[in-house]
Computed example of a mutant assay.
Amino acid sequence: MTSTPMEKIKAYHSMKPFISEQDLEQVANMLSLNAIDRTKRIEGKEAEFEFLLMCHLLGNLKDIVAFEEGFSRLTNTVTTDVLFITKDDRRLAIEIKSTEKQTWKITNTVLNDKENFAELMNAELYFAIRIKNYWLFLSSTYVRQKQNKITIQDLINSELHILGEQTFIFLNSLTIKSTYITDGDKGIGITHPDYGFLNRYSVEINQKNVLKISPSSKDKLLAYTFALEAVQDSASNHSQEIKKLDTHKTLIIETLNTNCSFNLSHFLLAPIRHLTHELHDNYDFTTYVTENIDDLRKVFVNKNLVIRTLGILHKNGLNVNEVINNDLTPLDRIYDLTDL
């Protein structure tokens, strides 16, 4: 069976931010897209947007150049997806891939073509591969060393630090308590689809309240809740207790396990995943980028806010370490936390 042209996939994908699910169904029928087109192939495009947004937010890129594959075919030129120029002037030709399988593979012919294009661009060839929702960033040299086959076990050799990625380990636990009410006038700017409006938010470490946000303090402290979205997501999967305090008030208690790892990108992307969209349940990264492409510098969370938030928790009993050269280094040995 002939594969659906990529131009149709791109057309469908580009329309997602602007029309409802019902209208999208009609567009898919008009373009004769099958189930694979609308799932696996669209997920590949979504993965590209996720990776590009992640790298932009990490803040170590000076330039991003995207290539139009359609015109390149006129001269049978094989391109990569993008060219990155980092702030330290490294030129990286990057191919972005996503797979649901255990192993990602590439043929020698395709690898040779990608390397030739990277050479044409005077750049190093890298592959950004999402396996099991983890991003691996590996050089073509490494891919060849692995005989063109990559698995999740290669994550330990990923080089995302080149793009500004950092990894933090929480050695002990914390508990987040969120109180929701049905009265929107008493909320602090965050909503829950089932329980209403966030009215109180607190973080406890060793049964000590170290961060407390209420309507009176929301203007000063609300940003910290955004910075901790990734932590709360993990905690909700580890231990979550929901208490109905009365007909209008619900308390959710979430506790994070010990020895948890978080990348800087987790903190940066998590708030976007929770945004509610007027046409869809939540924003995906394609929609977010499309609607904010001219204003992406204004984001909910940046690296400075993440470090400041983790610094406050570290000073108050959460043993936060950053992974540097495969060693764990306490946060207060890396950053000045005196003013927190």
Rank of each mutant, 00 (worst) to 15 (best):
E95D: 13
T107W: 12
V110E: 14
Y126K: 01
N122W: 09
R90P: 03
V110Y: 08
A123C: 10
E115W: 11
Q102G: 04
A123W: 03
I106A: 06
L111F: 01
N116L: 13
W104T: 00
N122K: 14
D113E: 15
T109R: 15
E95R: 12
A93F: 03
A93S: 12
L120K: 13
A118Q: 03
E124Y: 08
I129L: 05
L92P: 06
E115F: 10
K97G: 06
K105C: 08
M121Q: 11
Y126L: 07
F127T: 05
I129V: 09
D89L: 08
A123L: 08
D88R: 12
Q102C: 03
E100G: 06
T107H: 14
L111M: 08
K114Q: 14
L111S: 13
W104E: 00
A118P: 10
E100S: 12
D113M: 09
R90K: 15
T99N: 06
I94A: 05
E100F: 10
I106F: 09
S98Y: 06
E115S: 14
L125D: 01
E95H: 12
L111G: 05
V110W: 11
Q102H: 08
A118Y: 08
N116H: 13
E100P: 11
T107E: 09
T107L: 10
V110S: 14
K97I: 07
N116K: 15
W104F: 02
T103P: 08
I94H: 00
W104M: 00
D89S: 11
F127C: 05
F127L: 01
N108S: 11
E119T: 15
N108R: 11
E115N: 15
T103R: 13
T103N: 08
M121F: 12
T103W: 08
R91C: 01
